[in-house]
């Protein structure tokens, strides 16, 4: 055997031993630090609604829905010392979730649910953000998870059922998915809030200032790119609406103060 072959054999054996030691350490860490990787879940289907479920004062379950371009629920509060089972689903494209400061790092893939368990020992505010490119709102897709002192923690009261308006205008907003980007309670979202929009003085992307009257609303529904509001992106799709439906919508917006 040439001297080079002898040395090569030694190097290869050392290299194999080295990588196997590293692999062994990673395997050990699964049990030592209780950090594994997500596996295939067979008992839960993708869900559409985000929620926080209380099992006991120190055991919670969060169902996170990732969608373009927000997380639902947007803010979760749990007491320090609790264990949280996190389930993650997406209703549209692939998203990624990282809970900064923890080992929670999960992909949200359409058609499948992801899961990980996190234990929160101390009070702290955490940020959750999307780290898989999911479109033009990707860089603002973030949420909050607050771990608070158990003494100050108030468990979520069962929410009083929200008064669902029977107004056809509201039902249209729901049905045509307008609420994906426009809120009706004044909160900031992908599109301008519809609360108080009727008659609102609005600055446009082109610098002009107009009053959002009947004509403006009808024009923007028919042709969303015509007069984009300043500070928002030109991403609104054209909704398919009949004349009657547009009338109902505009009337609803007129009264949404």
């Amino acid at each position: 055997m040439t001297p080079s072959l002898r040395l090569e054999r030694r190097i290869i054996i050392i290299a194999i031993a080295f990588v196997l030691v590293l692999f062994g350490l990673a395997a050990l860490a699964i049990n030592m630090f209780h950090v594994g990787l997500p596996t295939c879940l067979t008992d839960i289907k993708p869900f559409q609604k985000g929620e926080l479920i209380t099992h006991s004062p120190d055991h919670y379950e969060v169902h996170y829905v990732a969608r373009m371009w927000e997380f639902d629920p947007e803010e979760v509060v749990v007491p320090a010392g609790s264990t949280v089972d996190v389930y993650l689903s997406t209703t549209d494209v692939t998203h990624g979730v990282i809970l900064l400061g923890t080992n929670l790092n999960l992909m949200a893939v359409p058609g499948v649910v992801n899961y990980a368990r996190v234990k929160f020992d101390r009070p702290r505010d955490y940020q959750l953000l999307c780290h898989e490119y999911c479109g033009t709102g990707h860089e603002r897709m973030a949420a909050k998870l607050r771990v608070v002192d158990p003494a100050t923690f108030k468990p979520n009261e069962p929410k009083a059922p929200v008064q669902q308006p029977t107004d056809p205008g509201y039902r249209l907003l729901e049905a045509k998915d307008c609420l994906t980007c426009h809120s009706i309670d004044g909160s900031e979202s992908i599109g301008p809030t519809l609360k108080g929009i009727y008659g609102r003085k609005t600055k446009l992307a082109n610098g002009a200032t107009i009053v959002a009257d009947d004509v403006y609303l009808r024009e923007s529904i028919a042709n969303p790119s015509a007069k984009v509001v300043n500070g928002f992106d030109d991403v609104m799709p054209k909704p398919e609406l009949t004349e009657q439906e547009i009338n109902a919508l505009v009337e609803y917006l007129e009264n949404l103060k």
């Binding site: 692999f23 395997a27 860490a29 080992n103 992909m107």
Partner: peptide, 12 residues
């Protein structure tokens, strides 16, 4: 490649 270490750095 170290299995669970990936949870720290994936997609960062």
């Amino acid at each position: 490649a170290s299995y669970n270490l990936d949870t720290v750095i994936h997609n960062t």
